[in-house]
Simulated assay, not measured.
Amino acid sequence: MDRRTALKHSALIALLGIIDVKKLFAASGNNSEIRGFHKFNLGKLELRVITDGHILMKPVQPNFAPGISSTVVEKTLDANFASKSEVDLSINILVVQSASRTILIDTGCGANFGKDSGWLTENLVHAGIKPSEVTDVVISHAHPDHIGGLTDKDGQVTFPNARVYLSRIEHDFWMSNSPDFSKSKITDEGLKKMVVAVARKNITALKPQLHLFEDRAEILDCIRIKLAPGHTPGHCVVQVFSGQESLYHVADLVHSQVLVFEHPEWGFEGDTDFELAVKSRRKILNELALSRALVFSYHLPWPGLGHVKKQGEGFEWIQQPTVLPD
Rank of each mutant, 00 (worst) to 15 (best):
residue 62 P to L: 09
residue 63 N to K: 04
residue 63 N to M: 09
residue 63 N to W: 13
residue 64 F to C: 05
residue 64 F to W: 11
residue 65 A to G: 10
residue 65 A to C: 13
residue 65 A to I: 06
residue 65 A to P: 01
residue 66 P to S: 07
residue 66 P to G: 05
residue 67 G to N: 08
residue 68 I to W: 04
residue 68 I to K: 09
residue 70 S to V: 10
residue 70 S to G: 04
residue 73 V to S: 08
residue 74 E to H: 15
residue 75 K to I: 03
residue 75 K to R: 14
residue 75 K to V: 02
residue 76 T to L: 15
residue 76 T to Y: 09
residue 76 T to F: 07
residue 77 L to P: 04
residue 77 L to M: 07
residue 77 L to T: 06
residue 77 L to R: 13
residue 79 A to N: 14
residue 80 N to E: 15
residue 80 N to M: 13
residue 80 N to T: 08
residue 81 F to A: 11
residue 81 F to R: 11
residue 82 A to N: 06
residue 83 S to W: 06
residue 85 S to G: 06
residue 86 E to S: 13
residue 87 V to R: 14
residue 88 D to N: 14
residue 89 L to V: 03
residue 90 S to C: 13
residue 91 I to Y: 03
residue 91 I to G: 04
residue 92 N to W: 06
residue 92 N to C: 02
residue 92 N to F: 02
residue 93 I to L: 11
residue 93 I to M: 05
residue 93 I to S: 02
residue 95 V to W: 00
residue 96 V to C: 03
residue 97 Q to V: 13
residue 97 Q to G: 07
residue 98 S to V: 09
residue 99 A to V: 11
residue 99 A to T: 10
residue 100 S to D: 15
residue 100 S to W: 04
residue 101 R to M: 12
residue 101 R to F: 07
residue 102 T to A: 00
residue 102 T to W: 01
residue 103 I to S: 01
residue 104 L to V: 01
residue 104 L to F: 01
residue 105 I to M: 02
residue 105 I to W: 04
residue 106 D to W: 01
residue 106 D to Q: 09
residue 108 G to Y: 08
residue 110 G to L: 10
residue 110 G to D: 10
residue 111 A to V: 09
residue 111 A to H: 12
residue 111 A to P: 05
residue 111 A to L: 07
residue 112 N to E: 14
residue 112 N to M: 10
residue 112 N to F: 12
residue 112 N to K: 06
residue 113 F to C: 03
residue 113 F to Q: 05
residue 113 F to G: 05
residue 113 F to A: 08
residue 115 K to Y: 09
residue 117 S to D: 04
residue 118 G to K: 05
residue 119 W to G: 10
